[in-house]
Design a protein around this nucleic acid. Structure first.
Length: 970
RNA sequence: GCCUGGGUGGCGGAAUUGGUAGACGCGCUGGAUUCAAAAUCCAGUUCUGGCAACAGAGUGCGGGUUCGAUUCCCGCCCCAGGUACCA
């Protein structure tokens, strides 16, 4: 056991190595993982063992891991968990005869490298490169079967060339609702030229009707402005989540509880001209597509909630003494007779116009107060009801009554129309609002009490509602919509919570937009001139006048004649134009990387059509569930878009997905008082007053087997402990309390795969990570148990009884029945475990198998060879070594055929029946499997032991389940 | 609040269609081997009572269905993740 401070480690590792070498010299038959693992890693790399090839005649299988962001902290044991599982699966698929694509790469654009650059002046490219190098070294140690020829890096210009291209394709597309498909913008222009926009049913921003002749009469810039409303990537003024601290905008899923996901800085609402993605166009298909993929229910549900489809209708309310109308969206048109007031969001465009002179002061104050509140404040004060009367009224379309018009910040400008018809009897928020301001609460439900709370259930009968009286809610909704449509005051409508995604970031370390501005209008740079490479800047911060970091670049202008980037000095707005200063968000590159792996080095297309046709969808995708509403939604969106435009033949990227759980760390805690004393945990537990103590986390590497700290090491670790007084227990130990935290440097509880590979070997690490528990569950890491797996691999090795010449002592004779049964039971269970992605029971089954074969003293080649193949996906290094020593070609176990299961070996002639009385098992009796239930019944009844449990009584009933159980009811 | 998971020994966990609860591993206890230690091997290890044979209880809690329930149904409690004025 290494129980030393990091400082003392080199010495211990050296001494450990000495002992190890000594042992290996003494006993050449021992399992020496260090030598073996290095040998096979080298062999696989040199022979390109795991390179995937297209069109080999085999069936394909695509196993993908979510690629990592290469952070400076390196990998801890939690990171490779999913990679190990996917690697095992990929290796099994190869043994089953599939051509397997199993690639890896890096999501290498991102904030941390940029923050580091701001602090140190170090170019993000440089830190990214060195982080990737470190990641690669760590990954290589674990023995993954990745095809590194296909590595991608999102920050590499040869990669982001295609990210830029996809952006231009999105810019040059619109969404045709009538065919539910993205189409080239050129086709839309053609339609406009012929028929104007009246026949166009598109997903677009609000747009007044125009005719073909209107269109032709528009100026270029008017046309451009109109087309922006239709493009899938568009430039628009929109309310964005602005994070002043980070100096950038954030997507909705990058904001958590009103603060930025990265860094936890406050976020506010701001109106900015930004690139956006019209993901809303795909809302329905993103929802429907979920039914076709094999993902966990929780992730699907999260996406469904995020998309948030609600079916209802729009209703127009005429404003009293005005030509204007207010449009509201409601899912409950059946309750329209209960609508006693209307509420607008404070940001609603008609607010100023509708406010009467008397109310102006109040309304202005309210609007101002609301705009000061961040979204977070609005959300956290749900119970805090606020609002103000505008002084205006609208006319109820059915009763013709005057309905007061209020403002309230519980109505969101960004959802629906930013206005609601308030039905206090049917909606709790409206009810609360009405109570608070003393507004009417008429009841439109038959026999429901609404004196204490609103009734929001979608059931029951409607009352006090004219033509809806007596109808069931469902029928009432339908009838109301029919009437609303017939009267021309509204129409059936479906709304989505999903909002268009802001696609601009005011950052340096991201993909530059392939865009320059001619008279303020965006122009795309053609594919043939891409990539538009990120320029050098002297400073990674925003410019002094508040422009994004790219504003610092001196050479960041586009010469539209030479088609190249030139110095800003040359900008003349004739041929040389300024380039876009924003960059793309982190999710741009990760939205399509799975396609690039299919043909990672192609310079002519993002991936060759033949390769795409061969590999198709990702068959198995493994990664964390934290990307449920971000990456996984955006990747689906881009996939559907590329499908629509005919670039790929499928519209869902990931057929099956498994989400691995998080591996948590176990922190070590000591107690410190205001003096200079450090207390052992067991001492603290006996103290009466602990109010003056505080918990301090210490480096877990300093702990021994009993959670006791190496005291000298602790003094050397941090100056705080240098001269501290240690209050130890009776054994003189300083014991730590262990607590489960996130694994992080911050809590000093990180365990790295490197140290475990060094000490126990990669095969042991791989199997232990799988053995910890079900893949999808989160679980704390405890290195203690790893011995069990290490012992198992040694036991496996001993099964082969190597002599001094490294030759196994095995026989070619036919194995006995018992050994065959063990083997085939294992084959069967393993294939079952694999189908269920139950890797933990997979490891157990290997342990059971090796235990049984050891007991049987099995020496048979016919048993041991299939076992080696079977275990090779889990423990590939030892398997290759054993395979070679068994006389096979080096490295070939990775390409062997999985042994076939033969049920004949499992058939038993007899079965040991548990005999239970009233459901409790009391003893066992063995009967032939062929014995009939009738005979078994007789045999059991005539047995001596039965008499004891009957205790003189007669059995009421007997249940005999052949091959399972016997139950006697007394 | 709502949605999705989950709750089984000292610990990680197993039990796949309702059929022997606790596989496998860790830890612990005892023994063998050893000058000693490591490693290895053997035996035991859900709890309670008992020297033992054995008996009773037992899968978050309370009910129900069934010959039989960790598994199915109803009601509740707790934990984790997601989400939240979405009209």
């Amino acid at each position: 056991m290494i129980r030393s401070p990091t400082a003392a480690r080199p010495f211990l590792i050296i001494s450990y190595l000495c002992i190890h070498i000594q042992k290996a010299l003494l006993n050449p038959m021992e399992y020496d993982f260090r030598v073996i693992e290095e040998k096979w890693r080298k062999h696989w790399a040199e022979n390109g063992t795991f390179q995937a090839k297209e069109n080999t005649g085999k069936d394909k299988y695509y196993v993908l891991d979510m690629f990592p962001y290469p952070s400076g902290a390196g990998l801890h044991v939690g990171h490779p968990l999913g990679y190990i599982a996917s690697d095992i699966y990929a290796r099994y698929k190869r043994l089953q005869g599939f051509e397997v694509l199993h690639p890896m790469g890096y999501d290498s654009f991102g904030l941390p490298a940029e923050q580091y650059a701001i602090q140190t002046g170090q170019h993000p490219e440089k830190t990214t490169q060195s982080n990737i190098k470190r990641y690669r070294e760590q990954l290589d140690l674990i023995g993954f079967s990745f095809d590194w020829e296909r590595e991608v890096r999102t920050s590499d210009p040869t990669y982001y060339k295609w990210t830029q291209w996809i952006f231009t394709e999105l810019f040059n597309s619109w969404y045709d609702e009538s065919t539910q498909k993205a189409r080239p913008i050129s086709e839309l222009i053609h339609i406009f030229e012929k028929d104007g926009n009246s026949g166009v049913f598109a997903c677009c921003d609000e747009c007044n009707p125009f005719t073909a002749s209107d269109w032709t009469a528009y100026s270029e810039s008017e046309k451009d402005d109109l087309l922006q409303k239709y493009r899938l990537a568009y430039l628009a003024d929109s309310w964005v989540n602005w994070c002043p601290e980070l100096g950038t905008v954030l997507a909705n899923d990058e904001v958590v509880n009103g603060v930025s996901e990265r860094g936890g800085h406050p976020v506010e609402q701001k109106l900015m001209r930004q690139w956006s993605m019209r993901i809303k166009a795909y809302a329905n298909r993103l929802l429907e597509g979920l039914n076709t993929v094999d993902w966990s229910d929780s992730i699907k549900e999260m996406q469904r909630n995020w998309i948030g489809k609600s079916v209802g209708c729009s209703v127009h309310f005429q404003i009293e003494n005005s030509e204007e109308q207010i449009e509201v969206f409601t899912t409950r048109p059946d309750t329209i007779f209960g609508a006693t007031f209307l509420v607008l969001a404070p940001e609603h465009p008609l607010v100023e116009q509708l406010t009467t002179q008397e109310q102006k002061a109040d309304v202005d104050a309210y609007v101002k107060a609301s705009s000061m509140k961040s979204e977070r404040d609005r959300q956290s004060n749900v119970k805090n009801i606020s609002g103000v009367f505008t002084g205006s009224y609208v006319i109820h379309p059915f009763t013709q009554k005057r309905v007061p018009l209020w403002l309230g910040d519980y109505v969101l400008a960004s959802y629906g129309t930013g206005a609601v018809m308030a039905v206090p009897c049917g909606d709790q928020r409206d009810w609360d609002f009405a109570k608070h301001f003393g507004l009417e609460i008429p009841n439109v439900f038959d026999g429901i009490d609404i004196s204490e709370a609103a009734y929001a259930e979608k059931s029951g009968r409607i009352a006090n509602s004219d033509f809806l009286n007596g109808l069931e809610v469902k029928d009432a909704i339908r009838t109301a919509i029919e009437r609303i449509e017939a009267d021309g005051i509204g129409r059936g409508k479906t709304n989505f919570r999903l909002r268009d995604a802001v696609f601009s970031r005011q950052r340096y370390w991201g993909e530059p937009f392939p865009v320059y501005y001619q008279d303020g209008r965006p122009k795309m740079i053609d594919l043939q001139h891409l990539p538009l490479v990120l320029p050098e800047v002297a400073n990674y911060l925003p410019t002094s006048d508040g422009r994004p970091p790219l504003g610092n670049a001196e050479k960041w202008a586009w010469d539209s004649q030479k088609n190249e980037v030139v110095s800003n000095d040359l900008i003349d707005h004739e041929h040389v134009f300024p380039l876009e200063l924003n960059t793309m968000p982190g999710w741009a590159g990760s939205s399509w990387y799975f396609l690039r792996y299919m043909d990672a080095q192609n310079d002519d297309v993002f991936a060759d059509r033949n390769n795409i046709e061969f590999w198709k969808q990702v068959d198995l995708y493994i990664g964390g569930s934290e990307h449920a509403t971000g990456h996984l939604l955006y990747a689906r969106f881009w996939t559907k878009f590329l499908y629509d435009r005919g670039y790929i033949p499928f519209d869902e990227p990931f057929k099956k997905m498994i989400n691995q759980g998080m591996i948590l760390g176990k922190s070590a805690i000591l107690y410190v008082d205001s003096g200079n004393n450090v207390y052992s945990y067991d001492v603290v537990q006996k103290l009466d007053d602990v109010s003056n103590l505080r918990e301090v986390r210490v480096l877990i590497d300093l702990l021994g087997d009993q959670d006791d700290v190496d005291q000298d090491a602790l003094r050397n670790w941090l100056p705080d402990f240098k001269d501290a007084n240690f209050v130890c227990n009776e054994q003189g130990q300083l014991i730590c309390k262990r607590e489960v935290d996130k694994m992080s440097k911050r809590w000093f509880n990180v365990v790295t795969p490197d140290e475990l590979c060094q000490k126990y070997g990669a095969d042991t690490l791989r199997m232990y990570e799988m053995f910890l528990g079900p893949l999808e569950q989160s679980k704390p890491w405890d290195t203690k148990g790893i011995n069990g797996v290490a012992n198992f691999l040694r036991k496996l090795w001993r099964l082969f009884h190597f002599n001094d010449h490294n030759a196994p002592q095995i026989t070619d004779e036919n194995p006995d029945k018992e050994a065959l049964k063990t083997l085939h039971k294992t084959i069967q269970k393993l294939s079952d475990d694999l189908n269920r992605f139950s890797f933990n029971t997979g490891v157990s089954n290997f342990m059971i198998c090796v235990n049984e074969l050891s007991e049987q003293k099995c020496h048979h080649r016919q048993i041991l060879e299939p076992l080696v193949i079977l275990i090779s996906p889990y423990a590939p290094h030892i398997a290759e070594e054993l395979w070679q020593r068994l006389g096979h070609e080096a490295g070939s176990v990775s390409k062997a055929a999985l042994p076939k299961f033969n049920p004949d070996y499992l058939v038993d002639d007899a079965f040991s029946y548990p005999i239970s009385f009233n459901g409790k098992v009391r003893f066992k009796l063995e009967f032939p499997r062929t014995m009939s239930p009738k005979e078994i019944e007789e045999q059991v009844l005539s047995n001596d032991q039965t008499a004891k449990w009957l205790d003189g009584k007669d059995p009421k009933k007997m249940i005999v389940v052949p091959g399972k159980i016997v139950n006697v009811v007394v």
